[in-house]
Amino acid sequence: MTAPREPRARAVWPLVRVLLSTQYAYMLEYRAEIALWALSGVLPLIMLGVWSGSGAGEAAGFTPAMLTRYFLAAFVVRQFTVVWVIHVFEEDNLQGRLSPYLLQPLHPFWRYLAAHVAEQVTRVPFVAALLALLFLLQPSLLWWPQRADVFWGVLATVAAFILRFLLQGVIAMACFWSERALALERLLLIPYLFLSGLVAPLETFPPGVRAFALATPFPYTVAFPARVLMGAEVNLGAGFLGLALWSGLFLILFLVLWRAGIRRYSAMGA
């Protein structure tokens, strides 16, 4: 079975390169918009302001320095785990762009994935500029994470991004059946906002709520990578296992729903 595989493997890399480079060029055209998107991710910084004015962090064992690191790390994680695939998918579906995509020998979601990756690359300088500005205004916020923390933190962020991409991909499949898939996404945003650790470290949750949150995929998308980045003590193995299990589950769900959706799509002749 190796013979037919070889040409495919050779063809994959140029495809990836072309996809990424065209998407990057496209995103560069919209860099001002991306700068605004980056700016709209300030929630963890606002929450840092609120938490530093409250004594509740310390009661949960978070020193002011730890709070700062946690929310700065959460800010960075959030910046690089932004997913909007449901919006493009719905748009492509409504505008009838999906049909030509389906005729191509490439799953349309690879295209979306490339767009996301390209957008993140475009985002890097803006996030760096925002952080630089922050440190300029408040030099006390500055800290250098350990090299190992950065390595595992980046890996965890990438994994968190994949998890969010797959989760939203599953929700996006609702576009095949309903015109209101975006409303589902709006509902999904609520547990993400409050259970992921974006607005409060999970350590401050009451034990019951915390256990509940940990049983959902959301803490893996912010709290886990943020804690790795800030250099807190984390169980790396358990964290990555959680990410892998949830991602695997959503991938299977996605593929099943995709097949059913495509069957419905072609049956309707849309």
């Binding site: 409250s54 009661a59 607005v199």
Partner: peptide
């Protein structure tokens, strides 16, 4: 919920 987290017992914000 988040506001309740910000208030420990008897604390003010």
């Amino acid at each position: 919920f988040v506001l309740s987290l910000l208030y420990g017992p008897g604390q003010s914000l």
